[in-house]
């Protein structure tokens, strides 16, 4: 019963953060600020949906004793870790590529990278 409530709470938090991330993607003015919304919030939201699955697998294993649910939880942990690392590196790569392609941060109070210019 407690596990059900925890699963529902984690799912709701995950969906909420994913939704806010998409709202940020549609609302923010330039590519760098959009990246802030998507990278951080969709990663965090997806981690929470994965956490819901992990809790569900653990609770089912305790109540039924079926080892299939342990497999479910371990695979989900690996998927969540892969997601976190690939998302951070991927967004870094897109930001670097965007700045090299000549796209400046449109509303910006300061741009030190522009002055450096390798």
């Amino acid at each position: 019963m407690i596990a059900d409530i925890l699963v529902l709470a984690c799912l709701s938090i995950g969906i909420l953060f994913n939704t806010l991330g998409i709202v940020g993607l549609l609302r923010f003015p330039d590519v760098y600020t959009r990246m802030h919304a998507t990278t951080k919030m969709t990663t965090f939201g997806s981690m929470f949906t994965a956490l819901a699955v992990i809790i569900f697998g653990g609770a089912q294993f305790i109540s039924t004793g079926d080892s299939q649910y342990v497999t479910l939880s371990t695979h989900t942990i690996i998927a969540a870790l892969a997601l976190a690392f690939t998302n951070a590196v991927g967004s870094h790569a897109i930001a670097r590529g965007a700045h090299r392609s000549g796209l400046k941060p449109a509303p910006a109070v300061v741009d030190r990278l522009e002055e450096w210019a390798p």
Partner: peptide, 21 residues
């Protein structure tokens, strides 16, 4: 710009992984 589209594709990929799980 093309970078905006790349960011959108990245987001769709992340959400697809969550949907698959």
């Amino acid at each position: 710009t093309a970078a905006d589209r790349a960011v959108a594709v990245d987001t769709v990929n992340t959400l697809s992984v969550a949907v698959l799980i």
